[in-house]
Simulated assay, not measured.
Amino acid sequence: MQGRLTIAEDMPLRLHRQVRLRWDKARGLWLLLAPEKILVPDETCVAVLQELDGGPLSGAIDRLAEKYAAPRDVIAGDVIEVLQDLANRGYLLSEEAIPNG
């Protein structure tokens, strides 16, 4: 996995290629699955991850602010906090840092 990312709104982000967000029907909850790791994300984390589309993070922030009718600056702070935690754990990649091929 790559080195530490500092999350910013202009970053195109996605989950690391070995990480999957999956709905566990039997348990009725979302799981973030990585090799030899399972994380049970909270509702905020799931909402944020579902908005990641490989484009700049600012687009996901805009969509979440509209969806929850919340001030954009509040949503941006929450989103960056959630994603920075995941990046620190190695769950995220920036599309800018991914080599071609």
Rank of each mutant, 00 (worst) to 15 (best):
M1H: 08
M1R: 09
M1A: 13
Q2K: 08
G3S: 12
G3Y: 02
R4G: 03
L5M: 13
L5A: 06
T6R: 05
T6H: 08
I7Y: 04
I7F: 08
I7Q: 07
I7S: 06
A8L: 07
E9A: 15
D10K: 07
D10W: 07
D10P: 00
M11H: 11
M11Y: 02
M11D: 09
P12V: 08
L13Y: 11
R14L: 09
R14N: 09
H16Y: 12
R17N: 12
R17A: 14
R20I: 01
R22D: 09
W23S: 03
W23Q: 02
K25F: 06
K25R: 12
A26W: 04
A26H: 11
A26K: 13
R27S: 09
W30I: 01
L31R: 13
L31G: 03
L32I: 06
L32A: 04
L32M: 07
L33Q: 15
L33G: 08
L33M: 13
A34E: 09
P35N: 10
P35D: 12
E36T: 06
E36K: 13
K37F: 05
P41I: 02
P41E: 07
P41Q: 03
D42Y: 08
D42F: 02
E43F: 04
E43A: 14
E43D: 13
E43S: 10
T44C: 05
C45E: 03
C45N: 00
V46Y: 00
V46K: 00
A47G: 04
L49Y: 01
L49T: 03
Q50D: 04
E51Y: 01
E51M: 07
E51T: 04
E51L: 02
E51C: 07
D53L: 12
G54E: 15
G54N: 14
G55N: 10
P56T: 14
P56H: 14
L57S: 11
S58T: 13
S58K: 15
A60D: 08
A60G: 06
A60H: 11
I61C: 05
D62Y: 08
L64P: 08
A65C: 10
E66D: 13
K67V: 10
Y68I: 06
A69V: 15
A70E: 15
P71W: 04
P71T: 03
R72P: 02
D73F: 07
D73Y: 10
V74S: 13
I75H: 07
I75M: 14
G77H: 11
G77W: 08
G77I: 09
D78W: 02
D78S: 10
D78K: 10
V79G: 08
V79Y: 04
E81F: 10
V82Y: 02
L83D: 03
L83E: 03
L86R: 01
A87F: 03
A87W: 01
A87K: 01
N88C: 05
N88F: 02
R89D: 15
R89W: 12
Y91Q: 06
Y91S: 05
L93R: 12
S94C: 08
S94D: 12
E95V: 15
E95S: 07
E95H: 00
A97N: 09
I98Q: 11
I98S: 06
I98V: 15
I98F: 06
I98H: 02
P99Y: 11
P99N: 06
G101D: 07
G101I: 05
G101N: 11
